[in-house]
């Protein structure tokens, strides 16, 4: 009991001293795995603090949408200076709130596979959604969405729910982009192959790793983790020639930030070479800029598909209707 109180007191004290420092503190709201000890956060913090004589603080939520909702709930009392982690499909939700400031970062030199230009959001990494499989266990793999739907009944996949997860929404848009009006029909054909639809990426990927399904919806860059961190070569992606839906991750500064200049410097920093060298082996995605060092070895064997991407405004306008359509098709 006494120990606990000391612990809580220590935690309180620690949070107070954080604010007491006279260096300016830049607060970044982001998703959990970015802020994790093994994520990009520690290295980004060290590099940015050294260059700008400030304190950089990451505040994690379980998802970037969660961070956005937190900012909305906090209103003008929010401590957030920057929101990092939304993607092109969700950034328009944030823009609609009117809480975010325009940026001055030069994004013209960035090497993105699909054009992205926005006055509020700055891209910092990207990847492609893909189905990952274990080549030791699964030998016949589909090469298109169409082939996936016509695999034998016993071929099972795990996907995420588009209402609670970005990969889930990504697949929904992927199907929509390729099938248009016939998307609902496609989902009906795909439904028998769907083992289960999980709340988030974690559950889906863990089910796959347990051997429950042949493939799980993840990223083309997922095998890089297994290659580099685990020295396992059997995890591969099912490569679809018609292209894969992309995810470009973004950051933006808040209008209410007390350190707008520092926030702008942070947005410049996330498009810098230093940041680009940190990203691949911490966030397991591609950086938005080529660097002198280049990509780590494990990334070179990855499949690089054509990127399919809808513009954010279209997604924002139709998301609800498309999710309803998906629910109607898959629930039968």
């Amino acid at each position: 009991m006494k120990k606990t109180l000391t612990l809580i007191a220590a935690a309180l004290l620690a949070s107070m001293t954080l604010h007491a420092a006279d260096k300016p503190t830049l607060t970044v709201y982001t998703y959990d795995s970015f802020a994790a000890d093994w994520g990009p956060a520690p290295k980004v913090k060290a590099a940015f603090e050294k260059a700008n004589n400030c304190t950089l603080r990451f505040v994690p939520s379980s998802s970037a949408i969660g961070s956005l909702r937190k900012i909305q709930l906090e209103g003008d009392k929010t401590q957030a200076d920057v929101l990092l982690g939304l993607d092109t499909s969700t950034a328009d939700m944030a823009k609609a709130t009117g809480l975010f400031a325009k940026h001055h970062t030069d994004t013209s030199k960035l090497t993105l596979p699909a054009p992205y230009k926005d006055d509020t959001f700055v891209p910092y990494d990207y990847s492609y959604f893909a189905f990952v499989y274990d080549s030791n266990k699964t030998h016949k793999v589909p090469t298109s969405l169409e082939e996936l739907a016509s695999m034998p009944e016993s071929f099972k996949i795990v996907i995420e729910d588009p209402r609670s997860s970005t990969p889930g929404l990504g697949l929904l848009l992927w199907v929509k982009a390729q099938y248009g009006d016939k998307a609902a029909d496609y989902w009906k054909r795909l439904a028998p192959h769907i083992l289960t639809i999980t709340k988030g990426w974690s559950e889906a990927y863990n089910l796959f790793l347990k051997g429950e399904a042949d493939m799980a919806l993840s990223y083309t860059t997922s095998p890089a983790y297994h290659i580099i961190a685990e020295k396992k070569l059997q995890y591969k992606t099912a490569n679809f020639a018609k292209g894969h839906y992309g995810q470009i991750e973004l950051a933006a500064a808040l209008k209410s930030s007390k350190h707008p200049k520092l926030a702008q410097k942070f947005l410049d920093f996330i498009t810098s070479e230093t940041f680009a060298d940190i990203i691949p082996t911490t966030n397991w995605t591609y950086p938005v800029r080529q660097t002198a060092k280049g990509l780590p070895e494990g990334f070179k064997s990855l499949y690089v598909p054509k990127m399919i991407l809808m513009d954010g405004a279209t997604v924002q306008k139709n998301r609800k209707a498309w999710i309803d359509e998906w629910l109607g098709a898959i629930a039968k």
């Binding site: 935690a11 959990d32 795995s33 802020a35 505040v59 969660g66 709930l73 974690s202 559950e203």
Partner: peptide, 25 residues
């Protein structure tokens, strides 16, 4: 704790979920 999550508060289930969410199965 989802909304309160910050780096000062971290519990075992939270840590577990963090590990699951970044390939560390």
């Amino acid at each position: 704790i989802a909304l309160f999550g910050n780096q000062e508060i971290t519990t075992l289930p939270w840590y577990l979920y963090q590990l699951m969410g970044s390939y560390r199965t």
